[in-house]
């Protein structure tokens, strides 16, 4: 049997600003995960940082051990996750601009 995989579009054409967190998603079946954020529109000076968060219940959250990832300007960024946990979400922070616009994907395999 091939391993299962699933791509979830968690946020679509959303303005990500500091303090924004995406909708939670259940990941307990997955062995590995990878977040992608496709920044569609951003000021060239804007820097987006994404931090993975995990939860045992979808209600209480803490940072995942993976280091945050940053990108400046439009384009694709990614954050790989091992030791995935039962729920995942992504936390956003922006500097150099108020917000950036993009799409947030969570890809899972297990």
């Amino acid at each position: 049997m091939l391993r299962r995989s699933f791509t979830a579009v968690i946020e679509r054409n959303v303005d990500f600003a500091t303090g924004f967190v995406c909708e939670p998603y259940e990941t307990g079946w997955a062995i590995e995960a990878r977040w992608f954020v496709n920044i569609l529109a951003a000021d060239p000076a804007a820097v987006l940082a994404i931090t993975a968060e995990v939860s045992p219940d979808g209600l209480a959250w803490c940072p995942h051990e993976a280091a945050p990832v940053e990108r400046s300007g439009p384009g694709l960024m990614t954050l790989p996750i091992t030791n995935v946990g039962p729920w995942g979400r992504l936390s956003f922070s922006v500097r150099g601009a108020e917000s950036v616009r993009g799409i947030c994907y969570l890809t899972l395999k297990g």
Binding site: N13, A60, P86
Partner: peptide, 23 residues
Amino acid sequence: DLDKVRPVVSDMRPPQISSVSFW
């Protein structure tokens, strides 16, 4: 252009494989 998707069908959320867990 996803900005042109009608709002009522623009954000219907991906289904999840759930272990039906509670806090």
